[in-house]
Every structure is written in C-alpha cells, then in structure tokens.
Amino acid sequence: MSETTETNVLISDEILEDVIDHIRQTSKDGQLVEKSSLTVFLEEPKMATEEEAPEEAPEAETSAEDEPEDQEHREALMTALMAALEASDAIEVKTLTDDAGAEFLYSAAEMTDQYASIVMSVNNKNYLKLIADTVRYESQKYPRATHISLFTKKPYNLTEGQLLGLLSSMSTDSTYADLKYTEASNGEKFLFSERHLTARHAKSLAEWEAVLSEENP
C-alpha cells in the first residue's frame, strides 16, 4: 500500500490495480478516461485488505451535500491516486485537456498519441479541422487520397448525414480550399489536398484503392 506522508491517505493495491485496469481497458476500447470519473473507484470507505466477506454489498455512501472536509478528502485521494499511477511500473498514463479544460487520461501502451488526438478532436467537436488535418496528413504522409467513408468509422463516428453536411460547408470556406474531391471508376469518393498531391496522382491512388488492388491480388 502506498502512503503520502503529508496527507496520510491510502490507496490500496487493489484500488490501484482496478484503476490501472480500467484505464488500460478503456484505452484498448478506443476511449479516453475522464479524470473526474475516477472518483467512483475511491468511494469505498475502507481501502484495506481484500479478504472481507464477499457477500457484503459495497458501501457506496456518497453524501448528498458536499461537506468541505469531504471535498478536501476527495481531492487528496485523487492527488494520491495520480501520484500512485505516475509511480506505477504497470502503466504509463498520458494526459490531454479538452477545450473546456477537463482532463482526460489514456494508457500509452494501449493507445497511440495519434489516435488519442483524433478522439480528443471528436470530443471537442472540431470536425472540420479534424477532417482537413486528416486529409492533408494522408495526402502528404502515405501518400494517399482519403476515402470519405473513413470519417464514418471509429473513432470519427460521423453519420453519413453529418459528414455530407460538413463537407458541404467546407467547400465554401477558403481555409479548406486545398481540399478537393476525386472519384474512382466505381463511384467511390475520395478527398485529397492539392498542397501535397496533383489531381492526377490522387485519382490514380483512389482508383488503385477502390478498384485495381482487387484486380491485382
């Protein structure tokens, strides 16, 4: 059990294990953990040994009013928990902050920074910028044209209606003037950035992905 000498607060091994497991599993599932949501792990009154009678229901006693001492106690617990996570060899926790200032956590072993930043952009609802950044990135990096259906998949999760609406609004915004459509011969639509790809190149890459790669197994 870990102890902080200042506050004399205890985070049991069991609690830590459960929190680590939760962050790892949530990251594995492609989600970020909102830091404030971790209080649910800290609500058990006793954080001692595990051999208590398993038939007893957990004592979930959250008081209706927020007594100042309770508030301070909860904050101290959270601080201790964060410290314990930091110190733990079993996980490397990374933090992101959304536009509203809330903190989110993920496990570096389970989720790449790349993926986490997409999830955060979705949380922040910065869809236009996200689409543009993605398309520009793919046009430059791989390089490839981006199949528009990408944005309906995890973690983007836009509906077709939302997507079409967004794409439509992009077409009138000069910030996104470099983004263009191209189409494969089977009608599948792609986006590319003409900062990084010529129209011809983008079209040929789209054609490969949608049609030709299947003919060249």
Partner: peptide
C-alpha cells in the same frame, strides 16, 4: 479471483 471480486462489487 479478481473477476469474481469485481463482479460482486458491481452486481452483488
């Protein structure tokens, strides 16, 4: 053991 413990905590 861990799974049983969590199951009981969450559903018991």
């Amino acid at each position: 053991k861990t799974a049983m413990r969590r199951y009981k905590r969450n559903f018991a």
